[in-house]
Structures are given as C-alpha cells and as structure tokens.
Design a protein around this nucleic acid. Structure first.
Lengths: 226, 226
DNA sequence: CCCATCTGTGAACGCAATGTGAACGGCCCC
DNA sequence: GGGGCCGTTCACATTGCGTTCACAGATGGG
C-alpha cells in the first residue's frame, strides 16, 4: 500500500507510533514546498493533517492538498476539542476528523473506514456547484452562466466557489479573506471589493445581482432561503 | 429541516438532549417494523444509530436502512470504545461513527460535516430570531414579516434584533444606545426615536404595534407578559 | 383646560462604506 | 529580458444611511 502523507514534520510521536503499530507506511512533510519532492513513486494513499498546533497553517496545507493535480484523499484531520468550531465552513477540506489526543483504536478505525469508503468509489460523481444559471465545475476549474462559459482567474474562481457553496449567507470581508485567501490578512480589505466587482462584471449585467452587498457587513451570494 | 431518525427508542437521554439543544428535529423508533409508520412526510434527513447496547441488532437495523427504497443517509453510528473492532468489514453500513459516551460538540460537528458532505447544504439550519409574524435570519441579515421580506439597514436590523431577542422587556433609550450602538457611544437619545419610527414604518401598519412606546421610559417589543 | 414634557415626523447634513478606474509589481511563459 | 496576466493597492467618485435639528402632535398632571 502506498504511504500516508503526514503533516507536520516531525509527526507527533503518538501518531507515528500508532501508524507504525498498525502497519501503515507513512512519510511526514513540513510544508507545501516539500510536497512534490517527498511524493513517492505511486503517489499517496491518503493524508493525516494535525491541526492542533497551528490550525491556520494546517488548513492552508489541506487546501493545497485538495487543489493539487490529484486531489489527495482520503484526508483525515486531527483537531483538539477546543477547535471543533473552526471546522465550520471548512467541510470541503477534509473527509473525516478525529479528536486529538486520540485513541489509537479510534484512529485506526477511522482510517479503515475512510479507505473502505474511498474504495467504494463514492467520489467519482462530477463535482459541481450549481446555483440558478451558474455552474462551477470543480474538476475542470471552469465556470458557466446560462450555458455560456465565462473566464475566471484563479482568485475569482475561488471566491465565487466559496460564495456559491454557501448561498444566502453573508460573509464579512475578513471572513472571506481568511476562508478564501487562507491566511490572516494585514491591510487591504478592499481587495475583496475589487474581486467582487470583477466577478459581477464577468457574470454579466443580468446576473451581477447574484452577489449582493450587505452594507456595513459584507457580501452575500444568491437569495436567502426561508 | 426533516427530522433525524434515532435508534433505538427511547433514545439515550444525552443524545436526546444534545439534539434538542442543537435544534435538531428527531424521532426515535424501536425496530425495523415501525420504520414505515414513523416516517415523516418529507422523509428522514439522516439517521443516528446507537450501537453501544445491542450491536448486533443495531447493525441489522443499519442494514435495513441502507437497503430501503431510498437508502438512508447520512448515517451516524454511536459505538462504545470497546466495540471499535466490530466496525471492521461493516464500513458500508454507516457514513461516520462517534465514540459513546460522546462530547456534544463532537457529535454536532460530525452531523454538520455529514450534512455538508451529503451536499445538503441544509446541514446548518439558519439561526433565526422569531416572534409572531416576524422572522430575522441572522446568517443572511434578512428580515421578513408574514413571509414578506423587508429591507432593513444595518442599524435598523441590529436594533430590531436586539428588541426581538428580548420581547416584552422595556429598554430605555440609553440602554438601547449602549447595547445596540455600543458602550462608548455618545449620541443623542433622539437617534433611537428615529430608528424606531423607521422600523415601525417598514414593519407595516399592521405590525407597527410590535414596538410599543412606554412613555417616560423607553420602548418595548412584543406584548407585555401582563 | 393649560402648560410642561415627551414623542412622532419630515427634511437636511455629513461621514463612512462601497463602487470604479487606473496603476503598480510580482510571476510565468514565450 | 520582455510582455502579458493577474492580484493587490491607491485615489477619487458616488451613494447610502446614521445622525441631528426644528417643529408638530400627543400625553398627562394639576
């Protein structure tokens, strides 16, 4: 079996021990940069990301994994109990999570379950985000409105994807910066404005109202559902 | 949102309490036979099966759920730590599991994650403030009276939210200024009057009396308890 | 019934939040 | 190295709306 990818490097001793005892091959990496170099011949079989220490960096790492040429899955996240609330709105970043400190048997059970389900091929449906006339194809990074493809840059796409994945919800600029851009941001909340404006322009006059301004709060995609 | 199916009946008190506190609708059934009869109009939104007590029967129950006309998912399994090994080779019976006794926050996090993955963006029900015909959606910053959306500015919304969150209570203008506008706010008390007036106007003639003037004191939302 | 006080009302002002166009600078690919 | 792409930032225009004011109407006490 191909090795598991562990983040960070060095892996926590308990984790390393559990994996070793369970007979799993694994390799730890310290950051995104060393990902490619560390990748084994046959690729990774899955990943475990420990988020207890530095959640932001861990989430960023997950994001990189998910956006790779071959999205890495299954992805198991290790979080402390106090950080459970941080999982919200980040469900797309991982397949399962486990509380840290963990019970070795629980971790093993989750790994087995994940691999089993991955083998069932449940994940081979085309991943689409749809809302009204808008369609985002997550596999091909293409977007279309009313059947017509529109050309989005990377950031535009990511922003639209996030918004369209949570229709009706209002997000502050700060939230968008941290969830879409992925790092704590210093300065320029206006960056969001500009991207919103370009999105509206590319959506076309007819669909520009898909993104609404909520004054003094932020932006909202689509209509609320009552 | 459609209710969750719980097995067995009666549901364990901690589980019932956690679901109630989390705002989930649920219904417990005692066996496969009573499944059809208990099924709600819109079907189930998911299921939680407690396997701690009688694992065999619980797994049988899961099997029935999975083989129904409409396979029930997501399906969350509650197991005790000692039974983790029983999960093996049964991965197809459930989507996720949680150790029992469980931490309420972990259970909620797993539910949210499951719903999110299932693509039912409905996993997180909108947080609402309701009073009579009035509904405030805290996530979308939208308000509606008798089903009709009304357009509120930021301050109007905040003021109404505060009032509607404390129905029947009388607040002085000073209190409102400090609680809604902020403690450090130095402004004329008449500002409150103007916002109240605009709120009444937007609520419509029929519902303007939701906000009552208490002369020489302040304002009250909703009916007094006397 | 009158006056003091409180509240409702419409309009006006001014600031802060957002829209908009343009320019800068990093990055990658010819 | 140069040129295009794209994310970011800045300066300026615009708009929304929170606040204030003056006055009218309402209320209640004596």
């Amino acid at each position: 079996m191909e090795p598991l990818l562990i983040y960070p490097d060095p892996a926590p001793p308990e984790l390393a021990q559990t994996l070793d005892l369970g007979g799993y091959a694994w390799k730890a990496v310290s950051d995104e940069a060393s990902l490619a170099a560390a990748e084994p011949q046959g690729g990774w079989s899955g990943a475990i990301v420990v988020a207890s220490d530095d959640p932001e960096r861990a989430f960023t790492f997950c994001r990189v994994l998910r956006k790779g040429d071959v999205p890495l899955s299954p992805l198991l996240l290790l979080v402390s109990g106090a950080q459970l609330h941080e999982l919200e709105l980040r469900d797309d970043l991982f397949d399962d999570f486990c509380l840290n400190p963990f019970h070795p048997r629980e971790l093993e059970a989750r790994l087995k379950h994940l691999f089993s389900r991955a083998g069932l091929g449940l994940g081979d449906r085309p991943e689409l985000v749809e809302y009204g006339d808008l369609v985002l194809n997550l596999e091909t990074y293409q977007a279309a409105v009313a059947g017509k493809p529109i050309d989005l840059t990377y950031m535009e796409y990511e922003l639209l994807k996030f918004l369209a994945s949570n229709p009706g919800k209002v997000f502050t600029r700060e939230t968008l910066l941290s969830r879409v851009w992925g790092y704590e941001y210093y300065g320029g909340a206006r960056t969001v404005d500009v991207h919103i404006r370009r999105l509206r322009a590319k959506l076309g006059e007819e669909h520009a109202n898909l993104i609404q301004t909520v004054r003094s709060v932020g932006y909202r995609f689509g209509q609320s559902r009552w």
